[in-house]
Design a protein around this nucleic acid. Structure first.
Lengths: 210, 210
DNA sequence: ACAACAAATGAATAATGATTCACTTATTTT
DNA sequence: AAAATAAGTGAATCATTATTCATTTGTTGT
């Protein structure tokens, strides 16, 4: 025998894999999943199309992984905002803000994660992550009910409503048909948007007018 | 010259067109837009594939029309519920109920209209109709603000939140991955679902606990 | 240097489905 | 009945992309 898999090679392989992921990620940032074809990704990563299949089972697998990574980052941010020592209502408010503001700051990716039509395999990830968001919210709502700052209610259902309300509110502003070429920030309008969403949601939870 | 288009032929043509629409509609009811390929539709309508292109510009055009018709029906139902003489809050509540209950009664079509991944041309219709729902809600919210039953707020934004909250709440229960084979009604669970949605939404609007 | 194996390549292939078009059939008018 | 025109047909074509695989290039141990 002559060739034995070595540490150096294992590293190099992992690095190549990561490089492909990074480039594919950049493709999605630039034009959504739609425009991120294997050929593009291969070109961006400066490898042959076949190489991608050495590292990933299929296109869907590759993009599912990207979706997972990107959304996990967002879920973590929301979880972070919910992890302070404040009252549940304050924490939920912060989390909703975080969600909306981050989306508006990275609109293409946010749109891809929230609303872009994607392959079934990737859509499955999306459903999973919507559930993940909802679960974080749900826990906070339960906390609020326990501490008395939120009236008793179906926490599961309410959390789903939160996710829906915020996502729907963002679809318009993020949609590429809406403001494709130049997605100007217009900070005033954006912060009013965020305020209205938060206001509706907190009121929906607590019944307390602000 | 010899052939002149006649009333009889115009009727027959319109009828053929409608027949194709009906059959395509039935295909969508049965398996969503995904499984409604031109070949299937042609087979269902007992015409050749080419015939379909005599009546419709393209596949997307055909399905956009179906989407439009189906959603318009739903929008009308919501509009109807909003058109009574009751107070705005009562009317909004009835409309939300109507929306949710109808969706749960026709789950495949509802899922196709609300959440199924579709072609861009059809997706455009979806966005349009989401806006249509929101506009009806918006008007009712304005009425409520005027009559004093709903506190002042950004009616446009709140209406979007309503649409998002209700749609998201239904995606899970309607999703074919969730309960594909047999979508049992389980009326108890469904009515609890509807109650929670309505409760959250009305509270989000009014700030009044129920 | 060479044997043994792994990784990379990218043109060729495959798969999917919408769309076309040369041809057949039906309808109307003279 | 025959000319003129429209509607219908469906096998063949086209377009788009993901995926494969025979071949080349790179790495390791003796």
């Amino acid at each position: 025998m002559a060739y034995r898999e070595t540490e150096k090679m294992r590293n190099r392989k992992a690095q190549a894999r990561q490089h492909i992921l990074d480039c594919a990620y950049r493709c999605v940032i630039e034009g959504g999943f739609r425009s991120a074809q294997i050929t593009h990704v291969a070109k961006a990563a400066e490898v042959a199309t076949g190489t991608i299949y050495r590292h990933f089972e299929s296109k869907e697998e590759l993009f599912a992984e990207i979706f997972r990574t990107a959304t996990q980052r967002e879920v973590n941010k929301v979880a972070e905002a919910l992890a302070t020592v404040d009252s549940a209502v304050i924490r939920l408010e912060a989390a909703l803000r975080q969600f909306a503001e981050r989306a508006l700051r990275g609109p293409t990716m946010a749109w891809s994660l929230i609303a872009e039509p994607v392959d079934p395999r990737v859509e499955a990830e999306r459903l999973l992550y919507r559930k993940a968001y909802a679960e974080h919210f749900e826990q906070a709502i339960r906390d609020g009910i326990e501490e008395g700052s939120i009236p008793p209610q179906n926490a599961r259902q309410s959390s789903t409503c939160l996710v829906g309300a915020i996502a729907e509110s963002l679809v318009g502003p993020l949609s590429p048909t809406q403001a494709d070429g130049e997605r100007e920030p217009d900070p005033d309008q954006q912060s009013e948007l965020v305020e209205s969403i938060v206001c509706f949601c907190i009121q929906g939870l607590t019944g307390i007018r602000r």
